[in-house]
Amino acid sequence: MSVSGVSNLNNVLQQLQSTAAQAGAKPTSAPTAAQKVNEGPDKVDFSNALVAAIDKIDSMKQSAVAQGHAFERGDAGVGINDVMVDMQKAGLAFEMGVQVRNRVVNAYKEIMNMQV
């Protein structure tokens, strides 16, 4: 996964926000601490979950790249098999993120096309 992949996901988020603003939706701000307390443990904010997932994907990529650099330097305890497995995990996580993004965009388009 490349840095451009994460920036692509951020671009999609910005596009979704701008489309929502054009549709007349009010942009939401980050919840305050008081609002989080009132939500309770069962409620999850979608935007926070999405940002956490993107951060997780990015950290997997950074970890795989760091392990690749450690292998290139010849650090003890870093095998090529570990590097390849971590690179594949990061790649699959990125692909999953892209698929989730595609489904969210499709769902949003369907909702926007509904007649009320």
Rank of each mutant, 00 (worst) to 15 (best):
A52N: 09
I80L: 14
A70Q: 08
A64M: 02
F71T: 09
N81I: 04
Q88H: 13
V83Y: 03
G77K: 00
K56Q: 11
G74K: 09
A66K: 05
A49Y: 06
M84C: 02
K56P: 04
V37R: 08
I54S: 01
F94Q: 15
V51P: 00
A53N: 12
A70L: 14
V98H: 03
I54A: 04
A49H: 04
A66Y: 04
G40N: 03
S47R: 10
A52T: 09
A53W: 12
D75W: 01
K61D: 14
V98W: 00
G97F: 02
K56W: 14
D75I: 06
M96L: 12
Q62L: 08
E39A: 15
E72N: 15
V83A: 03
A76E: 09
E95H: 06
L92M: 14
M60T: 07
A66V: 07
N48F: 08
M84Y: 13
N38L: 12
I54C: 00
I80E: 10
V85F: 08
V100L: 01
K56D: 15
Q67H: 08
N48Q: 12
V85A: 11
D75K: 10
K43A: 15
V37P: 00
D58I: 04
K43W: 08
R73P: 03
D75T: 04
Q99M: 05
V78P: 00
A52G: 00
A52C: 01
N102A: 10
E95G: 05
I57S: 05
I54G: 00
A52H: 10
V98P: 00
V65F: 09
V98A: 00
G68Q: 13
I54T: 04
G97D: 03
F71H: 12
D42E: 14
A52Y: 06
K61W: 08
V78L: 01
V44S: 11
D55L: 02
K61F: 09
N38M: 09
Q62A: 13
A53M: 12
G74V: 05
A93W: 06
A90F: 07
G68C: 05
V51N: 07
S47K: 15
V44F: 13
R101E: 10
A93E: 10
S59L: 06
A64C: 02
D42H: 09
F71C: 02
G40R: 01
Q62T: 11
V83G: 02
M96K: 08
A70W: 02
M87G: 06
D55T: 11
F46D: 15
I57F: 01
K89C: 01
M60H: 12
M84E: 09
N38W: 10
I80T: 09
S63Y: 15
G91W: 04
K61R: 14
V37L: 12
L50K: 02
S59N: 14
G68V: 07
P41I: 14
D86V: 04
D45C: 04
V100G: 00
R103P: 00
M84A: 06
L50M: 06
D55C: 01
A53H: 14
A93K: 06
Q88E: 14
K61V: 09
G97H: 03
E95S: 11
K43V: 14
A66I: 05
G77A: 03
A76Y: 03
